[in-house]
Write a protein that binds this DNA or RNA. Structure first.
Length: 822
RNA sequence: GCCGCGGUGGUGGAAUGGCAUACACGCAGGACUUAAAAUCCUGUGAACGAAUAGUUCGUGAGCGUUCGAGUCGCUCCCGCGGCACCA
């Protein structure tokens, strides 16, 4: 009768049982009643599952279980993101081939995930390194190439000298280091496959409006896309046929323009034969971007000897060269307005260039600008600007843009911070790029029938310093024939970045259905793609996506881009991959540092499971803090969650399981409290408020323990049901062994509770002059009238002593509060 | 500098504009025990106070709106994250 709580005794049994019965198999869906609930799939590292993974996957699992019990068709799959630098670097370190190592890591991850009771439909599992998967990744690459979204170009790119590969802008952190390995990035000229993501900049920005994503992530994507409205203004150069075009967002200040600055890489600069200019350009080129930044903001520069003419007033503006102007932004040429731009001011001061005030700000200061504090970058009214005088800067901007465009001296331009996506990696462990180079026919895609283009198993896969991937040395792989003219040709030897596989994996989960893969042709072709989408059961797009915020401008941006391109190819009928996104916060170590092997502060979930059971770990991680909050681990607090789980177990053991419902007298207050708890959990889970769900259950348990037999059987079962998403093992065991239920609790129907049953005492605070003085009890269903409340309030000593004068006004909100103003 | 998020007990945190500090951890006292662990019970924002009487103060600071503000508005301060010689 009195079984002790020993989770290890039954957790394993249920893992096997759920697997055998395919309890979590995705059922048929239809568009109106489906929930595709997805956690960002992991890179299976050798370290095994981290407690941070457990937090993310438990939260996602709670949501999936909740919707499943609420009668929705749920797709909740899991797979492995195994290509890329981390896997390869780990393999190099372990002196193993990644192709051998990855399956071992996956086996560990999978075993750990199962022990934690995540309700995945394992029939849909796959790995991005499976040729059966990446043949489609390659096929998609070819479709994008054919639609003109990819081009190959020799260009200076960010290069990690330690990882020996080129990188995308998004992979370089603000401090100039590589986001994977933390080493400093350099620049290197390499021929690259480049994705025209900038073509989609506007749509990537616009469509953010319809997404239910955290504000911070939306802001980061908006910033990263960095859309700016401005104008390109053409300036004639005195004594030359050259025209210098400058991009500016502040043409309103153009009457204050006193100089022009060109980037050292600017085309016009290359034509200048002046010795000091050549010297300056050479020096600038030898400095890396990081060195330039390290020099601080002190302005350097050299005068070209040329003057440009300001179209507005004929003023001659000296043309300078300076490395503070970036060739990669705008036109690589800037018109200097030192009165109204801090950098321009610094430059003008440094080289004794004129400063003209053209805007008066809210401080009313009209005096000449001589100090940096006077530089007026903000709102204001135009002066010294002829036909703009008296306008505010926004009106002036519009007016002068119109003026420039009418005179054909300028053109409105939208600029973006977003750069095209560098897609080549000079590494072994990635999808081979399915392109062939023929001297006669140039670049040709691999024939669809040839896919997958398999990554050869090779011994020395370590990165090289030649600027080529190790595949370049595999001669019989490289040398091939041209798909077009059948002459001799060479394969592309660079591979795709680790983001490629994760760009569309959520689509694959929906496509794969074990039952039909055998009959269904899986060869990469448009027909098969469309067939698989048709047969995919309307799961797409993803309804709930949960994962870390670190992917804000990487995976999340790239996936959105691919989906939009696929929509344009009519290969998908939706434009956004992830409708709702939620981030989980990081779990720090107990010492408030990051968990790291080198600090020796890592918590292994396996150890926690074997000591406290999976349910206690799940409950703890959901209870420790709001889901998106960064929080240090606490073993003490974990023990508190363990006590909670154990007390539930023991409470059910105490109950008299043979008692008949009719014999038992229910404690109506307890039932009312239970229903209130159920209501709270029902509304909390979809809001990702797992911590307060558990607090509510704890509160209820504290109360229930005073009268263990106070609930009849059906109600005692309801408590288990709302606990089930959080503690799947314990609830299933009690459901089965205590209540003798034949079907899984996880497929049972979520308890419904109406308002009418919740009868409870409510407390009405009494305030005098807004200060709380006493309380009056009332019934929720029969709230007392103002007169009754007033009568009771005036009887209270606590209230009476503060009513020192006449009551001027009484504020009574029925059922809420009464406030006497004296 | 710009963008986003936050600041509540010793700690993690709770609170549709209406009893601030739920729930948990920790701590203190007690029960059980030869003892410890485990478990259970009680207490636990601060100040004054013998008090589990009572009063005052109290959600980063200051104003404001309101009968009433942790919550709404304004001005700051601090912390975290992202971006940045971006014209």
């Amino acid at each position: 009768m009195n079984r002790k709580y020993q989770p290890n005794e039954f957790e394993k049994k249920w893992v096997e049982n759920w697997e055998k019965n395919k309890t979590y198999k995705s059922n048929e869906s239809n568009k109106t009643n489906k929930s595709y609930i997805l956690a960002m799939f992991p890179y299976p590292s050798g370290a095994g599952l981290h407690v941070g993974h457990v937090r993310n996957y438990t939260g996602t699992d709670v949501v999936a279980r909740y919707y499943r019990m609420n009668g929705r068709a749920v797709l909740h799959p899991m797979g492995w993101d195994a290509f890329g630098l981390p896997a390869e670097n780990a393999a190099v370190k372990a002196k193993k081939n990644p192709m051998d190592m990855v399956p071992e890591h996956i086996a560990t991850f999978k075993k750990q995930m199962k022990s934690l009771g995540f309700s995945y439909d394992w029939d849909r599992e796959f790995t991005t390194t499976d040729p059966a998967y990446y043949k489609w990744t390659q096929w998609l690459f070819i479709q994008f190439y054919k639609m003109g979204l990819l081009y190959k170009k020799n260009t200076p790119i960010n290069y990690c000298p330690v990882c020996k590969t080129g990188l995308a802008e998004e992979e370089v952190l603000a401090d100039g280091t590589h986001e994977r390995c933390g080493n400093k990035i350099t620049k290197k000229d390499l021929p690259q496959w480049i994705f025209k993501i900038t073509k989609y900049a506007d749509r990537l920005l616009e469509d953010l409006k319809g997404l239910d994503w955290p504000e911070g992530i939306l802001a980061m994507q908006r910033n990263w896309i960095g859309k700016k409205q401005g104008i390109n203004i053409d300036y004639k150069v005195k004594g030359s046929k050259e025209i210098i075009t400058c991009f500016t967002t502040r043409p309103d200040t153009n009457f204050g323009a006193t100089f022009i600055v060109l980037a050292p890489e600017h085309e016009f600069v290359k034509k200048i034969q002046k010795e000091d200019v050549k010297k300056y350009v050479k020096e600038a080129a030898s400095k890396s971007e990081i060195e330039r930044l390290a020099e601080g903001k002190k302005k350097t520069g050299v005068f070209t000897g040329f003057y440009a003419i300001n179209n507005l007033n004929g003023k001659e503006m000296p043309v300078w060269v300076s490395d503070f102007v970036l060739a990669s932004f705008g036109t690589g040429a800037v018109v200097g307005v030192p009165g109204h731009d801090i950098r321009d001011f610094e430059f003008a001061k440094e080289f004794g260039i004129d400063i003209i005030r053209v805007v008066v700000g809210s401080d009313g200061d009209k005096s000449p600008i001589t100090r940096i504090e006077q530089v007026q970058e903000k709102e204001g009214i135009m002066i010294n600007s002829e036909f703009l005088n008296g306008l505010d800067i926004h009106q002036a901007t519009k007016k002068i843009m119109d003026w420039f465009e009418e005179k054909k001296l300028g053109k409105r331009i939208t600029s973006y911070h977003l750069r095209d996506w560098i897609f080549s990696r000079q590494r072994y462990w990635g999808e081979p790029i399915p392109m062939i180079y023929c001297k006669k026919c140039q670049w040709q895609p691999v024939a669809e029938g040839e896919l997958p283009l398999k990554l050869p198993y090779i011994k020395s896969y370590e990165p090289t310093s030649t600027g080529e991937s190790p595949l370049a040395t595999v001669k019989d792989w490289v040398n091939t024939e041209c798909p077009n003219c059948h002459g001799p040709a060479k394969r592309e030897t660079d591979t795709m970045p680790n983001w490629a596989g994760s760009c569309w994996y959520f689509i694959r989960f929906a496509q794969i259905q074990k039952s039909n893969t055998k009959d269904q042709k899986d060869n990469s072709s448009i027909e098969n793609w469309k067939l698989q989408i048709e047969n995919s059961g309307n799961w797409l797009p993803v309804d709930w996506y949960l994962g870390g915020a670190e992917h804000a401008v990487l995976h999340l941006l790239y996936s959105r881009f691919w989906v939009k391109a696929l929509y344009d190819l009519k290969l998908l009928d939706f434009k956004e991959p992830f409708l709702k996104l939620r981030n989980q916060g990081m779990i720090l170590a107990e010492d408030h540092r990051k968990m790291s092997k080198s600090f020796g502060n890592v918590i292994n979930p396996d150890d926690v499971v074997s000591e406290y059971g999976a349910d206690a770990l799940r409950i703890y991680e959901m209870f420790m803090a709001p889901f998106n909050t960064e929080i240090p681990w606490s073993t003490k607090a974990l023990q508190g969650s363990y006590r909670f789980v154990k007390r539930i177990w023991e409470l059910y053991q105490k109950q008299d399981r043979n008692s008949n419902i009719k014999d038992q007298k229910e404690d109506t207050k307890l039932v009312s409290k239970l229903f209130k708890t159920i209501k709270k959990i029902t509304s909390d889970i979809p809001q990702v408020k797992f911590n307060t769900s558990i607090a509510a259950m704890m509160e209820f348990l504290n109360y229930w323990e005073k009268n263990p037999n106070g609930l009849e059987k059906e109600n005692a079962k309801k408590f288990l049901q709302v606990l089930a998403p959080f503690a799947p093992f314990l609830t299933e065991e009690l459901w089965d062994s205590f209540f003798g239920e034949k079907n899984s609790i996880h497929l049972s129907t979520w308890p419904k509770v109406g308002d009418e049953i919740i009868e409870e005492e409510i407390i009405i605070p009494v305030q005098v002059n807004g200060k709380f003085r006493d309380t009056i009890k009332s019934q929720k269903s029969k709230v007392k009238s103002q007169k009754e409340i007033e009568k009771l309030a005036f009887k209270s000593e606590k209230v009476k002593k503060f009513i020192t004068g006449k009551v001027k006004k009484t504020v009574y909100i029925p059922g809420k509060i009464i406030n006497f103003i004296i």
